[in-house]
Amino acid sequence: MDVLLPRTLEEALEMKAAHPQTVPLAGGTDLMVDLNFGRLRPPSILDVSRLPELRVLSREDGHCFLGAGVPYSRITAELGEFRPLAQASRSVGSPQIRNRGTVGGNLGTASPAGDILPVLAVYQAEVDLVRPGDTRALAWDRFLLGPKRTAIAPDELIAGVRWKVFRGTGSFSKIGTRNAMVIAVASLCLVLDEDARQVRAALGSCGPTILRAAAAEDYLTAELRRAGSWDDPACRLGQPVIDAFAERVADAARPIDDVRGTAAYRRHGLRVLARRALAWALEDRRQGR
């Protein structure tokens, strides 16, 4: 097995075009597991971990761009203001994994348990895909097609993700059966977008891919409007509204029983997380956090 070592993105794209079967390796924290378990036998590996173009973090025109090769430890250190993103990054693996693992790799693997993916879903992020002489941007849900399936073409690489920065509170939470280094049994990302006056919620590990809880989002967006809460964060929502939101979040799940958890527990857990996440978001905006 050959290892291709490009120095620039351009070189990498040429190599990828010339060897469409080659598999990109960023942190290797998913890929090496597949290799070790014999699930993958690529003719060659394309090491994209040294490409400076993929390690970019930038902000322009009210957007944030996060390079595909930025590891989680850098996200938690440098993007703390995007709280759900930082919380999701901190929940990934162990310190070693967070030093190596990247958002590009999380997208490339496209697991329904990828912890960054629900965050990208509520950020309505776009995935930048590059090929020699060309770039295209795909909405997160046009990129993620199903469990471990994406819309990437054989001659493309993921350059990074981009989202519109908005004001608002929110959080990412993940349930696992141990207190660290665990694959999500269920996860929830919730944001209250004050600019768009919209609630967005996404679920991980509760279906074949990341799910947005559309009915829950619409319900709560409307309830916040009805309560006048978008204008006045001090307005409180009644417990019945919080419960009804949580119920709708749980209903959005399409969970299964597997080794990591039961479908019944996943639904139950989502209901609890939704109640808590909403209470935190409301409390944080009241406090102006």
């Binding site: 919380q87 901190r90 939470s173 207190n179 660290a180 280094m181 996860s187 808590r276």
Partner: peptide, 13 residues
Amino acid sequence: PIRLPGGAGNTSR
């Protein structure tokens, strides 16, 4: 939250 049940998952305040 890392010092609560759920640990790094940020599931509780």
